[in-house]
């Protein structure tokens, strides 16, 4: 089952072409990792999938991103609903400087969900899903910024889960965390993939190898190779992919 089909996607920042004719089919309820050196376009690609690049004034996007049979770059697309369905977790944990509870409920509020019971239920469920509920259930009024970085990142994930997305985009979600916290977030991703399609950008090749089912290797704005993770890491078809994963890049 295909969750996202990307056809000939190009992104320009002014004169600079950050992404060149990228096509990719992302499978449902699998983890797809995007790897490649800094500035290769993997984050740009990720941010095309929920149209976060719209925030950048000079960005111009060409091509198609089809989710559920609809090109999300069509004029009449409901952008707010798209971003609800395609949630995003950022490189640095970015909880709002509000209480833990307010952070989780924020997404519900902006989508017009006011029902007390439903809000309560989603609050518990999303914190449970990221294994924060037991730790934090008695501190829901505490400011989210007082949490540890790992807890903050889990909270950001819970905040996304609360609006019941179908796809999770993660932009180097572990890069601010220590190895133990990283391992725990990775475990969490295994759990989540039963229910969600996950696309993760990572600098860390071991991480890609550990968690993902599919891997795409980007270089200078091009998708060099895309396939099952095992194949990419054991028998890459392209010499450039091989050079990168064996650390001979550059």
């Amino acid at each position: 089952m295909i969750a996202i089909e990307v056809n000939k996607l190009s992104v320009f920042y002014g004169q600079f072409q950050a992404l060149k004719d990228v096509s990719m089919k992302i499978n449902k309820q699998k983890i797809t990792a995007l790897i490649g050196p800094s500035g290769c376009g993997k984050t740009t690609f990720l941010r095309c999938l929920n149209r976060m690049n719209d925030l950048i004034d000079e960005a111009r996007i060409v091509g198609e991103v089809i989710i559920d049979g609809v090109d999300i770059y069509r004029e009449d697309i409901d952008l707010l609903e798209l971003r609800r369905r395609v949630g995003m977790v950022f490189q640095r944990p970015n909880p709002f400087p509000l209480s833990i509870e307010a952070n989780i409920l924020y997404g519900l509020k902006v989508h017009g969900i006011n029902d007390r019971k439903l809000m309560e239920e989603r609050l518990v469920r999303s914190l449970e899903a990221v294994q924060l509920w037991d730790e934090l259930k008695d501190h829901l009024r505490k400011n989210a910024l007082s949490l540890s970085l790992e807890q903050q990142q889990r909270l950001c994930l819970a905040r996304v889960l609360a609006v019941e997305p179908e796809i999770l985009l993660m932009d180097e979600p572990c890069s601010a965390l220590d190895p133990i916290a990283t391992a725990r977030i990775e475990e969490l991703m295994f759990d989540l993939k039963k229910q969600y399609t996950i696309v993760i950008v990572t600098h860390n090749m071991q991480q890609a190898a550990r968690v993902s089912d599919f891997t795409g290797y980007f270089l200078l704005g091009e998708l060099i190779e895309f396939g099952e993770t095992e194949q990419i890491f054991t028998a890459p078809a392209d010499r450039r992919t091989e050079e990168y994963i064996t650390g001979r890049y550059g």
């Binding site: 976060m52 707010l80 971003r83 970015n94 709002f96 924020y106 902006v110 996304v160």
Partner: peptide, 10 residues
């Protein structure tokens, strides 16, 4: 902050 909020569909 702004990115996080927009990404949630606000």
């Amino acid at each position: 902050y702004r990115e996080g909020s927009i990404a949630l569909g606000a």
